[in-house]
């Protein structure tokens, strides 16, 4: 059994992100218990995110031991979760050189379970309307010590598919978004604090996990 983990690496102000990127890659290459890993420098336009996105597929017997990134130059902290996939999909398993988007979110206290279940299904419905979502995965957080409850990840061919089709589609702003909107009575289930990160994708993460 393997465990999926995603981390946001936060660096100190003024830190050299490219140097940190190289150091993290070097460290992960020498780390045992990893079946696969991916590191990406976050692009302009993220919010609630760090400077790098790290994704790990860990062997279960060592997955409860956090990887120590404190030796990475400029390292400040990590914000990460392990999660269990609710559902994933692959349209383009051989995608190369795209965009990897990670949304970490928290279901707000008191949200009705049936509304949370609807939120999950509505989110998973997005690829049915948006061709630009090439591969995707929705996960439920399983690790303790974090306020995040869900991870919604997508792979795109280009940044325009994320900033264009994904954001502009009526299924997004006219349907799913009400789950994130405190002005919507009854159906609002997601806390307003989000982690929205996107970075270059080397090759599929969803497909190899």
């Amino acid at each position: 059994m393997s465990i999926c983990e995603t981390l946001q690496i936060h660096l100190k102000p003024g830190a050299d992100a490219a140097q940190a990127d190289a150091a993290i890659r070097s460290q992960l290459a020498g780390t045992t218990g990893l079946q696969s890993w991916h590191v990406g420098l976050n692009l302009e336009g993220c919010w609630g995110a760090g400077q790098l996105t790290v994704d790990l597929l860990r062997e279960a017997d060592s997955a409860d031991r956090p990887i120590d990134f404190s030796g990475v130059p400029g390292f400040e902290r990590t914000d990460g979760v392990q999660y269990q996939t609710i559902e994933q999909g692959l349209r383009e398993p051989d995608i190369q050189g795209g965009i990897w988007r990670t949304l970490m979110l928290q279901i707000r206290d008191g949200a009705a379970a049936e509304e949370v279940a609807k939120f999950e299904q509505e989110t998973l419905g997005m690829p049915r309307y948006m061709r630009g979502i090439r591969n995707w995965r929705l996960g439920r957080v399983t690790s303790p010590g974090t306020h995040w409850t869900h991870v919604w990840q997508q792979e795109y061919t280009t940044i325009n598919d994320l900033m264009g089709e994904y954001l502009l589609h009526p299924y997004h702003w006219g349907w799913v978004d009400r789950r994130f909107d405190p002005e919507f009575p009854e159906v609002w289930v997601v806390d307003t604090g989000l982690c929205h990160a996107f970075c270059p994708l080397e090759s599929t993460i969803v497909g190899r996990d």
Partner: peptide, 21 residues
């Protein structure tokens, strides 16, 4: 009671699910 509705132009065709989805 209270409800909120997000509305688009009714003269425009409704986006459909993709056929290959």
């Amino acid at each position: 009671e209270r409800r909120r509705h997000v509305m688009g132009d009714a003269t425009q065709p409704l986006p459909q699910p993709l056929e290959d989805a």
